[in-house]
Design a protein around this nucleic acid. Structure first.
Lengths: 180, 180
DNA sequence: GTGTCTGCAAAACCTTTGCATGATC
DNA sequence: GATCATGCAAAGGTTTTGCAGACAC
């Protein structure tokens, strides 16, 4: 492993080709529940799986419209909700007002770095952290269903470009919003 | 340390007596900014520091009214905002719609377990987890300002009382809401 | 043809804000 | 007395919902 690509960094490009498996999962899920595989749902599924970054409902709607697909806001939210239920999608709240979604098919759990300046989201995974979490919950008899670790700060790119940025954010709690 | 009280559990009772220090901090902060120490702010500060659990703005408002203190919703939100800015308060988003607040005076950083069934919030701290986080961000040149680790699941009390609860939640992604 | 889905607009929800009145320094 | 704070109601944002017409099975 090179220094530029440490073992805990997640390679986003590797999920580029899912071989259409998400579609089979989706169709099967719909069938089981007596729901219908409509054109809107097919178009939305395709769009969601063509985006390999995190996106909000509004951004998804915009990109659909750019493609000339006239889906309504209600349908976007309702379809995202179905995709969440069948585990093809995950939502993350970074305290920015809207939820960020990412498709998750065959992806392992991972955690996030959120740059408060450029809003870039970086994914990472660290087994040691996971193990320590399990140790804590095990001690307490707490049965974990899901968990989230989010680290907020300033990414290397931003702090290289603008030295003093970190100090500026640290002095402006209003920007960090004290959400933790 | 007894088994009932592992070293990573945070003893909430220990912050019961702050000796009024939070009031001095608050007054000093207000003075520095040319803000006023009004009756509403004093009453809210007292109430916030008399509550040793996590609470929402709505719950705070209710408890104030129970005490016969008629603060408006706007004032509650505005005062919470000031308390956040002077680091006497922290807000947490557990995906329940509203933010949960907790007063933090002389408290070290800690993480949270959230029981999806009884909504109980348990605090813990684990230095090893923090160290691993620092290692990851260090590798990436990411400058951390704050972070949050939240573990969602079913607490020991709930799963003892209702066996099968965990499985029920695991099968109902809609309840977990897929927020992570 | 039955049952589900879509789009629109309106509502829900928490939170913030504008403005006139009232309190603090 | 100047300035900031309060309360009310209205607006802000994202997300959800009711309903009539449209589509999938």
């Amino acid at each position: 492993m090179s220094e530029e690509n440490p073992e805990f960094l997640i390679d986003k490009a590797s999920d580029a080709d899912t071989d259409g498996a998400e579609r089979r999962v989706f169709e099967e899920f719909l069938r089981q529940r007596g729901l219908k595989f409509t054109q809107a749902r097919r178009l939305l599924l395709d769009k969601v799986f063509s985006m390999h970054d995190h996106f909000t409902a509004e951004q998804l709607l915009d990109r659909l419209r750019t493609d000339g697909i006239g889906a309504s806001k209600a349908t976007v939210y309702r379809t995202l909700s179905v995709l969440l239920e069948c585990d093809l999608l995950t939502a993350h709240d970074f305290g920015e007002g809207a939820l960020y979604y990412e498709h998750t098919f065959g992806h392992d759990h991972h955690d996030h770095l959120f740059c408060l300046h450029c809003k870039t989201i970086t994914e990472f995974r660290d087994d040691a952290i996971e193990e320590h979490q399990d140790r804590v919950t095990g001690h307490l008899g707490f049965r974990t269903l899901t968990h989230s670790l989010k680290i907020y700060g300033v990414c290397k790119g931003c702090s290289d470009e603008e030295p003093g940025l970190v100090e500026r954010y640290a002095a402006s709690p209003g920007i960090v919003r004290h959400r933790s």
